[in-house]
Simulated scan of single mutants.
Amino acid sequence: MTSTLTRRITLLLLASALPVLVAAPAGAEVPEGWSTPEDVSLLQILVVVAGIPLVLFALITLAVLLPALTRGEKLLPSTESKDQWFGGPGGSAGELEPAGRQTGTTGGASGSW
């Protein structure tokens, strides 16, 4: 029991420490021959992270909808259509069960083959 618990705790600790150990070189200093980069402002971050994707989304949406709008097509479905039962009978509810059919001889829990 305790050996299983010890193995699980050790595995959990190793799994949580591994990303930190692998990412350690990312915290290195800038080499001496390189220039020091300027700090990035919050506005620049917002433009890159949120602004550019929103502009791309708007352009793609416009590129998809513009041809239909120029042809004069409606983009929203019409609510004037009748309700339909796809694959069902073509008539009224009276046509669901034919009059000549006899029920009760087979089928259900008392059916026989």
Rank of each mutant, 00 (worst) to 15 (best):
P98Q: 02
P37M: 03
L21Y: 10
A99M: 03
S110T: 15
P53H: 12
P31T: 11
T36L: 01
S92I: 03
G108K: 15
G51S: 04
P31M: 09
P31H: 04
L18V: 11
T105D: 13
L18E: 00
P98Y: 02
L69H: 10
V55K: 10
L59R: 06
S78N: 06
V47R: 08
P37N: 05
I52W: 13
P67D: 11
R101D: 06
G94P: 01
T103R: 11
G33D: 13
T36M: 01
Q102D: 13
T70K: 08
L59E: 06
V20I: 14
V48E: 07
D83Y: 02
L66D: 08
E97L: 13
L42A: 09
L59I: 14
T61P: 00
L56C: 14
K74R: 13
K82I: 03
V49F: 13
G33A: 07
T79F: 05
R101T: 14
P31Q: 06
V40G: 03
A28Y: 08
L42P: 03
E32V: 04
A63K: 08
I60F: 12
V40L: 05
D39E: 06
T103S: 09
T105A: 12
T106E: 13
S92R: 05
L43W: 04
V48F: 11
L65C: 10
P37V: 04
V49I: 12
A28T: 10
G90C: 03
P19G: 06
A24C: 07
P53I: 06
E73M: 02
V49M: 11
L76K: 05
A26I: 12
V20T: 12
E73T: 01
A99Q: 03
E95D: 10
S81A: 14
P31C: 08
Q84T: 15
V55A: 09
L59F: 11
E73F: 04
S41H: 00
P89N: 07
E73V: 02
P98T: 03
S78Y: 04
T79L: 02
Q44N: 11
L69Y: 13
G107E: 13
S110Q: 15
L69W: 11
A109F: 15
A23R: 14
L96E: 03
P37K: 04
A63H: 09
E29P: 07
G87R: 00
P77E: 01
L42Y: 11
G108N: 14
A68W: 14
A68H: 15
Q44D: 14
P37W: 02
T105M: 14
L43M: 07
P37E: 03
D83N: 09
L18F: 11
T105W: 15
L56E: 06
V47C: 08
R101M: 10
L65N: 09
G90H: 04
Q44M: 09
P53C: 10
G107V: 05
L21Q: 07
G94N: 05
D39L: 00
L76S: 10
L75K: 00
V40E: 06
E97M: 06
E38C: 01
S78C: 01
A63L: 15
E73L: 02
I60W: 10
V47Q: 08
L96Q: 03
L66I: 15
S81I: 02
G100L: 10
G72M: 01
L96R: 00
R71M: 05
P77C: 01
T70I: 14
T79M: 04
G33Q: 13
Q44L: 09
R101W: 10
W34I: 05
V22I: 09
G88T: 10
E29W: 11
L66E: 08
G33H: 12
T106G: 09
